[in-house]
Amino acid sequence: MTARATRLTIAMTLCAGLAACGLTGGGGNSGEARLTGDDPQRAESTIWDLFGNRENPNYTVAVNKYLWNASLDVLNFLPIQSVDPYTGVIVTGYGTPPGGGRSYRATIRVSDPALDARSLKLALQGAGGAAVEPGTVRAVEDAILTRARQLRIRDGGL
């Protein structure tokens, strides 16, 4: 009985402490971070921010990891020029596929966390800025989507 009373006392103390941490300035219980002072980059947060799902979209990654990794696997013959996992963009330099004679460069954008064909945007460009046939672009997209499904199955996601 004493242990139960001790746990109840601790729980009540924690609740009272959390209640004392209440929001300051502006009243209300929005739980949003407020800017303080003259520095707009510094934000004051409260204990309630821990319980809310108010992630800053500038710090969250919203790309599908299987599409991302599959794109890098399928197009591994192309040199990477830039990669931005926050926007989901991969830009490559020119490279020649194995067994091919024509060089290509690619820009890949994974725009959604879903493993879906609509989440993948691919732009291919031939040497000298030449256009690439739509069938070639579709074949590369299909290869990326197939590899993404293989990676997901391997991870036990299905």
Rank of each mutant, 00 (worst) to 15 (best):
L72W: 11
L72H: 14
D73S: 14
L75F: 10
L75V: 08
N76M: 05
F77D: 02
F77P: 03
F77N: 04
F77A: 04
L78S: 05
L78H: 03
L78N: 04
P79K: 06
P79C: 06
I80W: 02
I80D: 06
Q81D: 14
Q81T: 01
Q81H: 10
S82G: 07
S82W: 06
D84Y: 08
P85G: 01
P85Y: 14
Y86D: 11
Y86L: 15
T87F: 05
T87R: 15
T87S: 15
G88M: 13
V89S: 09
V89Q: 14
V89G: 03
I90A: 04
T92Y: 08
T92E: 04
T92A: 02
T92P: 02
G93D: 09
T96C: 02
T96D: 02
T96V: 15
P97G: 09
P97I: 12
P98L: 11
P98K: 13
P98N: 12
P98V: 11
G100Y: 15
G100L: 12
R102S: 06
R102G: 00
S103F: 03
S103V: 03
Y104I: 04
R105P: 00
R105I: 01
T107N: 05
T107S: 10
T107Q: 14
T107A: 03
I108W: 04
R109A: 12
R109W: 09
R109E: 07
V110M: 02
D112S: 13
D112C: 02
D112Q: 05
P113S: 07
P113L: 06
A114T: 10
L115Y: 11
L115W: 11
D116K: 08
D116S: 15
D116P: 05
A117M: 05
A117P: 09
R118D: 10
R118N: 09
S119H: 03
S119W: 04
S119Y: 04
K121A: 03
K121V: 00
K121Q: 08
K121L: 01
L122P: 03
A123K: 09
A123I: 04
L124Y: 07
L124C: 04
Q125F: 01
Q125A: 03
Q125S: 07
G126Q: 02
G126V: 01
G126H: 07
A127Q: 09
A127P: 00
A127F: 05
G128C: 00
G128W: 00
G128V: 01
G128H: 00
G129D: 02
A130S: 10
A130C: 00
A130T: 10
A130Q: 13
A131I: 00
A131S: 13
A131Q: 11
A131T: 04
V132F: 12
V132A: 07
E133K: 15
P134V: 11
P134D: 14
G135D: 15
T136E: 14
T136H: 12
V137R: 15
A139P: 08
V140H: 09
V140G: 07
V140Q: 10
E141Y: 07
D142N: 15
D142W: 12
A143E: 13
A143N: 12
I144M: 07
I144H: 08
I144W: 09
L145E: 09
T146G: 14
R147A: 13
R147T: 11
A148Y: 11
R149C: 05
R149P: 03
R149E: 15
Q150G: 08
Q150A: 15
L151P: 08
L151W: 08
R152W: 07
R152S: 13
R154T: 06
D155G: 02
D155V: 01
D155Y: 02
